[in-house]
Amino acid sequence: MTLVLTTIVSGLCVGSLLLLIALGLGLTFGQMGVINNAHGEFIMIGAYTAYLVQRALGDPGSSLLLSLPVAFVTAGLLGVVLEVTLLRRMHRRPLDTLLVTFGVSLVLQQLARDLFGAPSVNVTAPAWLSGDPFVIAGADVPRTWVFLFALSIGCVLGLRIVLGVTPLGRRIRATVQNRDLAETSGISTAATDRMTFFIGSGLAGVAGVGVTLLGAISPTLGTSYIVNAFLVVVAGGIGQLWGSVVAAFGLGILESFIGFSIGQSTAQALVFLVVVVFLQFRPQGLIALRTRSIA
């Protein structure tokens, strides 16, 4: 029983991280059809931001909390730069954005390699996260996992509030549902796109800070998460917040269970296959946006 619980908890931890990454990815994919391969590099930038903030401040506790907003803004601004300079001109060619952003990710990785060196660096976890694990019903739960879980749930709720209540959220939803109609109603969809990209990339930055709690930071950090995050977005349903939540935790727990029984590498491969098969039955993902288009 304890074993099952441990496996579930470790799945929730993997899922929290996936969710943080997929949130931003799904946001920009849903609204603009942009498949942002450079999203993984925004994670990497968030992680290096945490590293730099800690080097500047010294104290692990306050630097972790401070690096969350700093990474959000840094990655977000970079995302806006990418959107304004490049992606805006490719609105009608979503498939090409996939390759263009791959080029961007190559450049960003090399930049990180030149700035910080190829060997990985570490961020020290603060004392209140590296202490004794919590014990829940006999299962050990490391404090960092709880922090990650809380962070991702916090981000989901924050995003939910922004999308649901604020004027910006209303504009974003209008643009997602019908871009032309939104434009006709006086919404500047270009400005909305920029803000969406800011939020989406910023969330990747926050995810990057979270990643530093789990392991070392290297220039190619983002590549290991991006494929999984894409799957979460697709499996959850494009632009569907709750779909992404269910898909992220579902995939995390699934991977954790398979990984526990037959080994980590096979688990990864199997999870990918499960998603491919799942999409055979629900090509629109868990939660589908109802539209009147024929496709």
Partner: peptide, 26 residues
Amino acid sequence: ARRVRGAYFAILSQALVAAFAILLIG
């Protein structure tokens, strides 16, 4: 036949090759 196309197809094919590479390494 399920009319999965465009970006979805690209992402699926990428996931397949990722799974393949992971299996080979494992």
